[in-house]
Write a protein that binds this DNA or RNA. Structure first.
Lengths: 347, 347
DNA sequence: CTGAAAGCGCTTACAG
DNA sequence: CTGAAAGCGCTTACAG
């Protein structure tokens, strides 16, 4: 392995001169630079980034914690995140909680051991209330409230709920089935804002006097369960005339409806929540609430930027502690609008 | 930041003793260990992994270069890879070529700068013949022949082609449309083994006297193009009675067929190549050639293991150079069987 | 079994 | 504008 030392020797200059040339820092005379550069080329010198990382205590790597990217929602989100980070010269370390026996605590560990500069938390594991706030390193949550000081980016699920409810009410739905995660996540003080779309739909439909049942489809990582659930709906609720669920659930429900000879949208409407590619490849183009992946990813990246800037900032307690106390925003939350994309599965 | 030095001071022992305790290496007396451990706890010591990385010249990170994980094939593959690597305590660095303005050469750069221990190459960019072999660091290719010394793992596309052809012949297809990547990739000496399934199908259908047209669907990252292509088939070939393409293409083609009132499978058969989740969420369960993701990921990981072992090995030219010459396998290629999963879209 | 020393490869003040 | 020196935080021979 050829190092700076070798280059310095070959060029007949000092170590620091080589460093200056490599980093294009400070002033180096033209011929010094030339000598160094030709030596680098001749020896085929490649700087060892690890040494720099050690010195700077930075790896330019962000951990992206997802339940699993086998799920289209999370693969889409991750793809967009990766683009945002790459544009900032940040690497994306893929951290799945469902594909692995590793929980996110192992990833947090890696964060603290300085192998990552920050973490995007989009997995669904639950933790004691103070777990996240006690970490004191750059974390940004997606669609999770993790506690004071952990910024959140999420879609406007209330809006999503309103859009769905309006569609269903206007089209004269009579019996709606909502498919979603474990109802236990709906408890008071839940950390899952996602549920608000279900709650909103339920409330608005109730006000309109429309029957609405909720069916649990298992956790987001259990895709087989989604498929089974979607098929079972028709047994359990023979007179269902509208189904609302994730792209996966909606697609499978639509498929099952076709198998049973149920006319969509005449006798059954289907609305997908998420709006990934899968909503376009189902039996018909699904009417979908589209979460705005580019905007979500951009917002997450911007938040991450500032979290990192804050972290890299005053390592020693700043003299004006009071000022920073004043600055403490009460868990900044950024809400991204959604849109209803009309498809072929609603009236 | 509290470091080993602080722990040593607090425990009243030397630096190396702390190191031994932390790494659970060598012999440390019980009370020494106890003192150190309590000091670590009190100071809340967290080892800085960067320093270790520098010393060991290893990051335990594998770069996974994909065109884009927005495509279901690559997100599925990546999910499985991540599982395999995690089981080996290797991190997965997500490297997309299509989601980014970065080409894989930038990732190769990171490999050489020792920020990654190895690279899985599954993207589709072309390079001069000697590019890959000149890197001399752990690389394993998926479905790409990259040159001498770069192991390849791929599905048995010839078998895939045979399975498809047999299905089409046995069911009495008359006019088949094959949808795939740019035909320019089919040139002699191509580095894309994938094309062999098309070539095999074409040959076998020709022998059977069945008409077969090839339609280009754009690169794998251009999903919008796939969708457009799938719809256009019906205009271009009004009498098509079988369509073969990736999960995405097949799903969209099926959707379009339904829109046009074409009966599947009676008047049109559809076969999907890949067999991801998307093949299950289309309008009907797609008959699919399923690539064996778990086996592919496992094979890639095993190859990566040995590439890394070889790389970490004799840094200095070994005395028996001749022996290693003899050992040089001519580009090991591991071929994983595929399977035809019968669905509702074939007769 | 423990400690002082050198070193992983680079960076950055700091004298000249 | 250049060079000798200290240091990033840890590891590992190597004396004791």
């Amino acid at each position: 392995m050829v190092g700076m030392r070798d280059v310095a020797k070959a060029a007949g200059v000092s170590l620091s001169t080589v460093s200056l040339v490599v980093n294009n820092t400070g002033y180096v005379s033209a011929d010094m630079r030339a000598k160094v550069e030709s030596a680098m080329r001749q020896l085929n010198y490649i700087p060892n980034e690890l040494a720099r990382n050690l010195y700077r205590n930075r790896t330019n790597t962000i951990g992206v914690i997802m339940p699993t990217i086998a799920h289209p929602f999370f693969s889409t989100l991750t793809a967009h995140l990766q683009r945002e980070f790459a544009a900032r010269d940040l690497k994306t370390l893929l951290c799945s909680t469902a594909d692995t026996d590793k929980g996110e605590s192992e990833y947090i560990d890696m964060l603290q051991r300085h192998m990552m500069d920050g973490i995007i938390m989009a997995a669904h594991t639950e933790h004691p209330a103070d777990y996240w706030t006690s970490i004191h390193r750059p974390i940004v949550a997606f669609d999770r409230t993790l506690g004071e000081g952990v910024p959140v980016v999420r879609s406007d699920h209330e809006q999503g709920g309103r859009l769905i409810a309006r569609q269903l009410i206007d089209s004269g739905a009579r019996h709606v089935v909502l498919v979603g995660g474990p109802r236990s996540q709906f408890a008071e003080g839940t950390t899952f804002p996602t549920i608000r779309y279900h709650l909103t739909v339920e409330r608005l439909l109730a006000e309109a006097g429309i029957a609405c049942d909720y069916v649990e489809a298992g956790t987001v990582a259990d895709i087989a369960a989604h498929e089974a659930t979607a098929c079972a709906i028709f047994e359990q609720y023979p007179d269902v005339d509208a189904i609302v669920g994730s792209d996966v659930v909606a697609s499978v429900a639509l498929q099952e409806a076709s198998r049973r000879g149920i006319e969509v949208p005449a006798d059954l409407q289907v609305i997908a929540y998420d709006g990934t590619l899968m909503a376009e490849t189902a039996g018909k183009r699904l009417t979908a609430i589209r979460q705005d992946f580019p905007a979500i990813a951009a917002a997450l990246a911007v938040r991450m930027d500032s979290q990192i800037a804050a972290d890299g900032g005053p390592a020693s307690p700043s003299k004006n502690d009071s000022a920073s106390d004043v600055d403490t925003q009460p868990t900044p939350e950024e809400v991204i609008p959604v849109a209803l994309i009309p498809g072929e599965t609603t009236r």
